[in-house]
Design a protein around this nucleic acid. Structure first.
Length: 170
DNA sequence: CCCTGATTCGC
DNA sequence: GCGAATCAGG
């Protein structure tokens, strides 16, 4: 595939709408997210708001040396401690999670192919067959077709205890 | 591990 | 110009 005017146009549009590079790649088809990002840069529209970075990396030769893959798993402190922190953070998130509004897509993120797979929430939104019918698309839990919130919704009807627990928490 | 965008550079 | 490989970070 090449960057035709239409494809570039769609690329710009989706990028401006806030879709991630991989999602755009999936939308366009025939390109990888790297290709998308590369094009974004060439078009000079990189830096949407402030995703990540503002960092400066030292350039590094690619051809000559195979380059020792110094996988930086810096683990500054103790691994055990790091694990603890993670658990704590997760617990916090769970406690603070609640709003239905938080699941609302900021933009028309209608899921098409690609991303709608194993780890994306397949909770239907809208009427099937309707033009605006789409899926939640949030990160889904492992071994679950739905995201955290929608999984909870699904279980509410079948598990009263879960409902009570949720009510107590939030 | 999953993901994100950023950058380099051989093609 | 293109994009894979690589990088830094969440």
């Amino acid at each position: 595939m090449s960057w035709t005017d239409e494809r570039v146009d769609l690329l710009k549009k989706l990028w401006q709408e806030g879709l991630s590079a991989s999602q755009i790649a999936g939308e366009l088809g025939g390109v990888t997210r790297n290709a998308v990002i590369g094009k974004i840069h060439r078009l000079g529209l990189s830096g949407r708001g402030q995703p990540t970075s503002t960092i400066k990396r030292a350039r590094r030769p690619r051809n000559s040396a195979p380059v020792r893959q110094q996988r930086r798993t810096v683990t500054v402190g103790a691994t055990a401690l790091q694990a603890e922190v993670e658990v704590e953070m997760e617990a916090e998130q769970e406690t603070e999670l609640q709003p239905v509004h938080a699941l609302v897509m900021p933009i028309s993120r209608r899921l098409t192919i690609e991303k709608l797979t194993e780890r994306t929430c397949k909770w239907p939104i809208g009427d099937p067959g309707d033009e605006d019918f789409h899926f939640c698309g949030c990160d889904s839990l492992e071994s679950s077709p739905y995201c955290e919130y929608h999984a909870g919704v699904a279980y509410q009807t079948s598990d009263p205890r879960r409902r009570m627990k949720r009510a107590a928490n939030g």
